[in-house]
């Protein structure tokens, strides 16, 4: 394990929310590490703090206490713009609700981050075509998101997350809105892409099928880690 690189590391992460005067301890002191290239999952019942934890890791939300290192960099040290650029270049997001931009076509949704990065038109197009083939959506680049099924939309989201080759893919309950057959297909596809590209995948889920495919599983309950499993895949 020591020769493997730690890509995500948290230290005593805490986050409280206050709603109508009631304080909710969403995340209560979480320490864990993820190694580069892993296919891992945070599991636990609804409301246990999975989304909050992922948001703290990606810097979309700021912790009340504790630290997050991504690829060796302490993200709480970064300014807003720095963090925003870091996220753009290093993290790919897959959301439960897909969250594609409705006015953009499939191709435009996928190339969005590359546009922000200033990548040239030709290379953008080539990479879009390439990734669309990988996620099995070749030929649909000019469709609008509303013209696609849920499973297809989630494939576009996966393509959008991966096309700019970030180091980390964070997926918050990516299969929760899909039927189990579609979900399984997508998971197998992501596992394959993980093998192929070596990108680190971190899921949150309460889907058994995700857990079965995960290399490491972190079990959360009431904002705390209650179990860690590391499965050695030979």
């Amino acid at each position: 394990m020591s020769d493997k690189k730690i890509i995500i590391k948290t230290e005593n992460l805490k986050k409280d929310y206050k709603e109508d005067g009631v304080v909710v301890h969403a995340v209560r002191g979480i320490d864990f590490m993820i190694e580069k290239g892993e296919f891992s999952a945070i599991v636990g019942p609804s409301g246990c703090g999975k989304t909050t934890l992922l948001n703290l890791i990606s810097g979309l939300d700021t912790p009340d206490e504790g630290k997050v290192w991504l690829d060796g960099k302490l993200i709480s040290d970064m300014s807003g713009k720095e963090l925003s650029d870091f996220r753009r270049d290093n993290i790919g997001f897959i959301f439960q609700a897909y969250n594609l931009i409705p006015v953009l076509t499939v191709e435009e949704n996928i190339e969005y981050i590359m546009l922000l990065q200033g990548i040239g038109k030709k290379e953008r197009h080539n990479r879009v075509i390439e990734i669309l083939e990988e996620v099995g959506l070749s030929g649909l680049e000019n469709r609008r998101p509303t013209q696609l099924s849920g499973g297809q939309q989630q494939r576009v989201t996966i393509a959008r997350a991966m096309v700019s080759k970030p180091k980390i893919i964070l997926a918050d309950e990516p299969t929760a809105n899909l039927d189990s057959k579609t979900g399984t297909e997508l998971l197998d596809m992501m596992a394959e892409l993980n093998e192929k590209t070596g990108m680190t995948f971190l899921f949150s889920t309460h889907d058994k099928m995700v857990m079965e495919r995960a290399r490491r599983v972190v079990v959360l309950k009431d904002g705390m880690i209650v179990d860690k499993k590391e499965i050695d895949i030979v």
């Binding site: 990606s58 925003s84 996220r87 997001f93 969250n99 931009i101 922000l116």
Partner: peptide
């Protein structure tokens, strides 16, 4: 929500 997505993807304010 869309602006939230754009920001999450790294769009500057």
């Amino acid at each position: 929500r869309e602006y939230g997505v754009l920001k999450a993807l790294g769009t500057r304010p």
